[in-house]
Design a protein around this nucleic acid. Structure first.
Length: 594
RNA sequence: GCGCCCGUAGCUCAGUGGAUUAGAGCAUUGGUCUUCGAAACCAAGGGUCGCAGGUUCGAAUCCUGCCGGGCGCACCA
């Protein structure tokens, strides 16, 4: 990194490290924006951390004393960008930086362009991130849809900090659930002349919900003759196991058809959410390729299994991850469980050489996490490579009534319904506004009736306003015959209003925010960040009504150019943050009549 | 019963890398459009950070125990 590109915070850090070099070993310390401007612009807890570290013996050192010592050493360095240093509170060192230094650093935003916010933290290491992976036995509902924007935004964040990211969807297209889906469709085929039928019995294994009825209609349309042929072959008690007097082969056909159709719908829903995957892995292929079988064999050889009541169990008392929670790998009928396939699937990912494996799962899968880790550990893979982001399901309300979601119960809200109602941008932003582990309330009435209040509009409005100013500026310059070059960097010394300097500080924090959000796997930090930027700008903008110094397009030509440059920097940062979250940054917004 | 997550303003939630005076949006109340977009701005009220202990100079943040809510604990996936 060239010296020129070192940020003010980095310069301050270096200066502090030099000033505190007598206190070894130097602990890690933080430099952040002071919460209250009156204290200063930047602050560090260095003195307080040192005081604690130095107090191990009898000589208790006062943070204030250490702070004073550091100040005098900093003063010896004659830092030309430092305005003033003070001590406050329990020993905080507060700094005020010269405006010229901030103005200079502002230039890094537009000079970096598309690279602003990027870093090489990831060093090109590879990450596989698996998300959505909704079972193709039903459409994506608002509950598991949360994993979509979450995984997608995480992938973008990790790319931004220099990882090579593969986005993957694992399709659970194996198992008894497919027959159940087939049976469920069959019910509605049998009742095709009776649309008011009550639906399959609640205590049956059938999937509830309107979508099954729709599937039956599609099936009748697309493979009508085939079905009627098969139905005509039915004999009353041909297959007692299904309890419906229908041949197992018809159920299989319908189940397969249902999975195929639903998977297509899921892909469409992902498109609507603005999500694309680099890789689709089918459980069926894992199973069919013999990989599961090989895994089971390997586990048996490792002596971490046992036979019990005809089934094969993973049982490794020495493995703390498993925590004595034994689980079935192969059922007594000889078929592997999804767990066995899942182990094979994860082993495949290890074999592909990924450096990190991230699973974005609904919180109901939390019990599954240690078991998969235990199994791969038994097979000699590093379980630490697997990281799991567990998100709480979205709680859907209709007014005051909570709606319990269940793919089987049928009483759920489709992701598509919400998407159609509020649009992709609001949909994504809303789901990305909360920490993954936080419960998220989605009141449909509220979302539908008051979607205008969604914060996403606030951010987009700020962005559109900035674009509008720039458009107007271009027009104004043209009329005045002034040429405005794209890459011209104006003199920024007129940018010295407190709000301007404060906003420069915030804008320059963007790369750190990205780094932290990516490291902690918490995209919602970016939502809050761009909201803060938008808010600061809206406030700044509004001041122009009563104070001409805040007007962008008035004053001297140099001042106008500087303010425009400032506005472009804000617009650039907002657009970048929105793009990271997969949300559009419109250049203009249109009023909807209410 | 065991495990994971959550409990912060009336509501929905940030903050949980200990640290300067605990924040935001919505809602409520009161102001602000002849001027770069009022989908906006400004101001006010509103909090024993679930409870109780502990560690610390300092705890919403760390530890322990309880209480309340959600979710798991299948030869389903």
């Amino acid at each position: 990194m060239s010296l020129k590109n070192i940020s003010l915070k980095q310069k301050l850090r270096q200066a502090l490290e030099k000033a505190a070099q007598d206190y070894q070993p130097l602990p890690s310390f933080e430099i952040e924006r002071a919460k209250i401007r009156a204290h200063g612009e930047l602050a560090t807890n260095l003195a307080m951390i040192l005081a604690r570290q130095q107090s191990v013996g009898e000589n208790k050192k006062n943070p204030q004393t250490i702070a004073q010592d550091i100040i005098s050493k900093l003063n010896d360095q004659n830092l030309d960008w430092m305005e003033s240093i003070s001590v406050a509170g329990g020993g905080f060192l507060n700094f005020v930086i010269k405006p010229s230094a901030w103005q200079e650093e502002l230039k890094t935003i537009l000079e970096s362009g598309e690279d602003f916010g990027k870093s090489d933290e990831g060093q090109g290491k590879s990450i596989n991130i698996e998300f959505v992976s909704a079972n193709p036995t039903g459409p994506i509902h608002i509950g598991n849809a949360r994993g979509g924007p979450l995984g997608d935004a995480l992938a973008s964040l990790l790319k931004t900090i220099g990882y090579d990211v593969t986005k993957e969807y694992y399709v659970n297209d194996v198992g008894g659930q497919i027959d159940r889906l087939g049976e469920s469709i069959l019910y509605w085929i049998d009742e095709k002349d009776n649309p008011e039928a009550p639906g399959p019995a609640k205590d049956s294994n059938c999937y509830q919900g309107e979508y099954v009825k729709e599937l039956a209609q599609i099936a009748l349309r697309e493979l009508g003759e085939k079905i009627s042929d098969m139905v005509s072959e039915v004999e009353p008690s041909s297959d007692p196991s299904t309890g419906s007097g229908c041949p197992a082969s018809l159920i299989k056909v319908l189940g397969k058809f249902g999975i195929k159709t639903l998977l297509k719908q899921i892909k469409d829903d992902c498109d609507l959410m603005g999500i694309t995957f680099d890789s689709w892995v089918n459980e069926k292929e894992i199973l069919g390729s013999g990989k599961t079988e090989a895994i089971l064999k390997a586990l048996i050889e490792k002596n971490v299994t046992k036979k019990h009541e005809g089934a094969l169990w993973l049982a490794d008392a020495s493995n703390e991850l498993l925590n004595d929670r034994e689980c079935v790998l192969e059922k007594s009928d000889g078929r592997p469980t999804y767990f066995a396939n899942d182990i094979a699937y994860h082993v495949e990912k290890y074999k592909k050489g990924y450096d990190r494996l991230i699973n974005v799962w609904g919180s109901n899968h939390h019990g599954h996490v240690p078991r998969v880790k235990a199994a791969v550990q038994s097979l000699g893979y590093d379980p630490e490579k697997i990281e799991t982001v567990l998100y709480q399901y979205v709680r859907v309300k209709r007014g005051n009534d909570a709606v319990k979601m269940s793919k089987r119960g049928g009483n759920f809200v489709l992701a598509r319904e919400v998407l159609d109602e509020v649009g992709r941008d609001a949909f994504r932003f809303f789901l990305l506004m909360r920490a993954p582990e936080s419960h998220l309330d989605f009141d449909l009435e509220l979302a539908k009736s008051q979607s205008q209040e969604n914060p996403v509009y606030y951010v987009q409005y700020a962005h559109a306003r900035l674009c509008s100013i720039m458009k107007k500026a271009a027009q104004q310059f043209k009329e005045q015959g002034i040429e405005l070059k794209d890459h011209e960097i104006p003199d920024l010394k007129s940018l010295n209003l407190p709000e301007e300097l404060e906003m420069i500080r915030v804008l320059l924090e963007y790369p750190e925010e990205i780094l932290r959000a990516a490291k902690k796997l918490e995209p919602h930090r970016i939502s809050f960040y761009i909201l803060e930027v938008a808010k600061m700008f809206q406030s700044y903008y509004s001041k122009a009504k009563t104070d001409d110094r805040y007007r962008v397009l008035s004053g001297s030509i140099d001042s106008v150019k500087a303010k425009l440059y400032f506005c472009r920097s804000i617009q650039h940062t907002l657009a970048s943050g929105l793009k990271l979250l997969g949300i559009t940054a419109p250049t203009e917004m249109h009023h909807e009549e209410s």
